[in-house]
Nucleic acid binder design. Structure first.
Lengths: 101, 101
DNA sequence: TGGCCAATATTGGACGTCCGATATATTTAA
DNA sequence: TTAAATATATCGGACGTCCAATATTGGCCA
């Protein structure tokens, strides 16, 4: 369960490269509150140190994207996540269907 | 994202009361590895200290169950979890459907 | 050019997760 | 009645998440 933030960041980056603020805003959309720089940048740094993410300057922004290693790792983590939380997901779907009735 | 273990424990207990080892075995089924006592019991203690869980001796075992407060808290956490991870869940479903083809 | 602002980054501290090691109680089996 | 097995529990240390505060960089505009 540790590493959920890193997992989500990699999931975002698997969709498209993003710069730090974009990632923070995506997390805000998801969670309802925006992580502070002290949350997001250490996580990005950690991912870079492990060779999962690279960065590239673009004007004022620094665009982060998955490396090859990051892509395969993120796929594995995604599958693991799906399998692990499947029973909870099913419960979510059940709860939503009941609401619709 | 912090508190995922506590969330899962409360989700289990919302299904039925369980003793510590049962919880550990449920987590093993989910995650593939069984958390050690040093993981599970501090978490249970923490939930008890916050009045979310009560315990009750039953022979050799100690059965944990949600309090009233624990039940409402767990429901809220469950809804939060469902909403937060909905986009990821949808991706999971998509990935599984593609595999079936 | 100077000042503003958005984005990036670091620090320090708190907290929850996690394991390995160790300890203890109780129940079952030899 | 011991011995083994099961379940509970604590301790120490490492790690990842999180925020508030602070600092720095680079682009933009008055």
């Amino acid at each position: 369960m540790r590493g959920m933030l890193s997992f989500l960041i990699m999931w975002f980056l698997s969709k498209r490269p993003m710069y730090g603020e974009e990632i923070a805003l995506e997390l805000e959309k998801m969670k309802g509150n925006k992580p502070t720089p002290g949350t997001i940048y250490p996580a990005l740094k950690h991912l870079q140190n492990n060779g999962l993410v690279t960065s590239q300057k673009d004007g004022r922004n620094i665009i982060y994207s998955l490396t090859e290693k990051g892509t395969t790792t993120s796929k594995k983590a995604f599958e693991y996540f799906c399998n692990m939380f499947e029973p909870v997901f099913k419960d979510c779907i059940k709860a939503k269907n009941l609401k619709k009735i």
